[in-house]
Design a protein around this nucleic acid. Structure first.
Length: 498
RNA sequence: GGCCCCGUCAUCUAGUGGCCUAGGAUACGGCCCUUUCAAGGCUGUUACGCGGGUUCGAAUCCCGCCGGGGUCACCA
């Protein structure tokens, strides 16, 4: 039995063997790198075990949610190649997948909780609670919001025991009934996580405008959508306790939770959209990172599979397991991302990289390139020389131009009299070339060295400078093949001044 | 500040009581290869936060300290 088969039989944690997982972003901006990793890990888990990956949009923050953000998240996931089985544009057996479209359902459950005495209508206004906080602060001689937290303010509603329905705006709060016990759950990476239930408070389920809050909507949706495993960032650990309380009040079985370590910026702070431009997934697309490389890098940030560093998509799917996720926060490391990107640039099939580099070429004004033998050759030549698709495109561009920008210093050094003499000899050989391929062209340097007794550098450099205008390029064979016969001859003639 | 989570090289990590004079990767240095630049091969420097235990034996178990992070909203 293989490891994979074994794992299939013994699906981690409780729940069904074919897990139903979800990624539930809030559409308040672009797809965040932390969100992308959360999506990836959940996706990998579902794919490996033949489960279902659900995409749910938690758009209950009406202040910040925008349709543009929904689109940005969809675009980000699509670019990364993370596809969802249920969700926006796909539908599924448990619609809707936008929380704002199922407000009635939340009200139904809230009423159910009220009827059971597990929630209550709180008619205290926002201004009043704010005043309570302020008064509390004043009594302690504090003013700052942060100090308020430190002072340990605990809200206690005067409406807690009220069951009348008044004609006034209200909020629905969970009625926490501490039994002096621990409330907790079994986390796949942290093990048992718990805290005293009296540490929780009567959190808000439904706002005055009837829109649910995270700790409520999330529980109902995960239950309704039959989510078996919830994997999310560690910042949610504390809210999980509140959610567990809701599951208990409703008599529902909670999913298996896994809390992922956070990704920190290089300054040691949690990666944020404001302070860290690299937090934007699409910024990496613009920077010329392959989606696969970004996935590879981010997958490995907080998860490991022995000493393995580089994974194909298939390997990620085959190797990933929630239980192998680590506990410690990771720091974003741009150099490593770049090295992983460089690795795949030179490793992936040239046709694939060629297709990927095309838009970047167009962006720098190369409009006549297409995925053909010539571009693939260029990709093979520059694969080991490029860190990103951006610099690969920049390197390829001159080969699609019909003139060189001559570096005077290079010309002075290599296109002096002896250099030109050598170039003439090379030209003669080139003229006689029956076929213009890298393999056919490459040996001319050796042949010339043999025939003239000159050092290879004295032969290759004049050709290189004539062909590219500079002293560095891939091997002579590749360089001339990329240029093509006509352009090569044109450039040599120009260098010769003929 | 209360509560919660975490603590192996600069960074990502392997490591689950003896195989560890701690391994891999990135970055950095050297050497080799070489027609240039890369790539590649070989190689070097660098880590178990501190202090107590437990044990014949601890990076691995326990306690304390210190350090980092998260969270305490009618955001998610």
């Amino acid at each position: 039995m293989t490891t994979i088969e074994w794992t299939l039989l013994h699906a981690t944690g409780a729940g069904p063997m074919k897990p139903r997982v979800r990624f539930a972003p809030s559409p308040t901006g672009y797809l965040h790198i932390g969100g992308a990793r959360t999506a990836l890990w959940n996706w990998l888990y579902a794919r490996r075990l033949g489960g279902t990956f659900v995409l749910r949009i938690e758009d209950t923050d009406q202040e910040r949610s925008t349709p543009e953000s929904v689109q940005a998240i969809l675009d980000g996931l699509t670019w990364l190649g993370i596809d969802w089985d249920e969700g926006p544009g796909k539908g599924g057996p448990f619609p809707p997948y936008f929380q704002m479209e199922k407000i009635k359902r939340y009200h139904e459950i809230a009423d159910q909780l009220i009827a059971a005495g597990k929630a209550y209508r709180d008619y205290t206004t926002e201004e009043e609670t704010a005043k309570m906080r302020l008064d509390f602060a004043a009594s302690k001689g504090l003013t700052e919001k942060d100090d308020l937290r430190k002072a340990g303010f605990k809200y206690s509603s005067p409406w807690r025991e009220n069951t009348d329905k008044l004609d006034r705006p209200f909020v629905i709060r969970f009625k926490l009934q501490p039994k002096g016990e621990k409330i907790g759950f079994e986390d796949l990476v942290h093990g048992r996580l718990e805290k005293p239930d009296e540490d929780l408070d009567d959190f808000v389920l439904l706002r005055t405008d009837g829109i649910p809050l995270y700790n409520f909507g999330c529980v109902i949706d995960d239950h309704d959508m039959e989510i078996s495993h919830v994997g999310r960032g560690q910042e949610h650990i504390n809210s999980t306790y509140s959610q567990i309380a809701v599951y208990q009040a409703l008599g529902w079985t909670p999913p298996v939770f896994t809390h992922f370590p956070l990704i920190m910026g290089q300054n040691g702070e949690k990666l944020s959209k404001r302070k860290h431009p690299e937090a934007d997934v699409m910024a990496h697309k613009r920077a010329g990172i392959l989606p696969h490389a970004l996935l590879n890098f981010v997958a490995r940030l907080g998860w490991s599979h022995g000493n393995d560093e580089l994974f194909t998509r298939e390997q990620m799917v085959a190797f990933f397991d929630l239980k192998d996720v680590g506990k410690t926060n990771g720091v974003w490391n741009p150099e490593k991302l770049l090295s992983i990107n460089a690795h795949w640039l030179k490793t992936l099939p040239p046709a694939e990289v060629a297709a990927a580099v095309l838009p970047y070429l167009e962006h720098v004004g190369v409009t006549d390139a297409k995925v053909d033998a010539r571009l693939e050759l260029a990709v093979k030549a520059f694969g080991p020389r490029a860190k990103t698709l951006v610099d690969m495109a920049a390197s390829i561009k001159p080969y699609y131009a019909n003139a060189v920008t001559m570096d005077p210093a290079a010309a002075a050094k290599h296109l002096d009299a002896p250099g030109k003499e050598m170039l003439k000899l090379a030209k003669a050989k080139l003229l006689a070339m029956p076929e213009w391929t890298s393999a056919a062209l490459e040996p001319i340097v050796d042949q010339l060295a043999l025939e003239t007794g000159a050092k290879k550098g004295a032969i290759a450099q004049p050709i290189r400078v004539a062909a590219t205008g500079g002293t560095t390029s891939p091997g002579i064979g590749d360089t001339l093949a990329m240029l093509g016969r006509d352009e090569t001859m044109r450039r040599i003639d120009a260098a010769l001044g003929t």
